[in-house]
């Protein structure tokens, strides 16, 4: 019974699935326009909201790809559920560590828990290497401070 229902439902889903090729070209055009928009707005380097704007544009582009190129708009039920759940977990996975990080204050962090406390972990590297953006190289620059690169 369940299988028969699924079969009928699937047939119903499939029927409206085939469209003309024009739709793909339209989506392609939209994606290119959005790419131009994100490059132009990205080059201005808007403070604070630049990242948000870029992510909103990227999400819009991603939604277009998912709905039309990947036909999610024609699918129902399980396919959509799987995708929605995965996005939910991505958002949780992003939010929880960032909230944790954003609400720490330095006094509460034990020694060794911030990057500047860490020693280089690479086997064979010495302790100072790579600590200040890699300014100190192995040969002969060991004693110097990182700030001023040598010409």
């Amino acid at each position: 019974m369940g299988i028969a229902n699924e079969s009928r439902e699937e047939e119903q889903n499939m029927r409206e699935e085939h469209h003309g090729a024009g739709r793909y070209w339209l989506i392609w055009g939209l994606l290119l326009v959005l790419t131009v928009v994100t490059v132009l707005t990205g080059r201005i380097h808007i403070p604070t909201w630049g990242l948000v704007l870029a992510l909103v544009i990227a999400s819009t582009k991603g939604t277009l790809v998912l709905l039309y190129f990947m036909h999610l708009i024609d699918h129902r039920g399980a396919n959509r559920l799987v995708f929605a759940v995965s996005i939910l977990f991505v958002l949780l996975m992003l939010a929880i560590p960032l909230v944790d990080l954003g609400t720490r204050y330095r006094g509460a962090t034990p020694p060794g828990s911030t990057y500047s406390d860490l020693q280089a972990l690479d086997i064979g590297a010495d302790a100072q290497e790579g600590r200040y953006g890699g300014a100190i190289r192995k040969e002969g620059k060991m004693g110097e401070e990182s700030g001023a690169p040598k010409q």
């Binding site: 590297a125 790579g130 953006g133 890699g134 190289r137 690169p149």
Partner: peptide
């Protein structure tokens, strides 16, 4: 990481 050797940008975190 420690293979970073570009002198144009010297800031903590750039190799990351």
């Amino acid at each position: 990481g420690r293979f970073y050797s570009y002198e144009g940008i010297q800031l903590p975190g750039v190799p990351l």
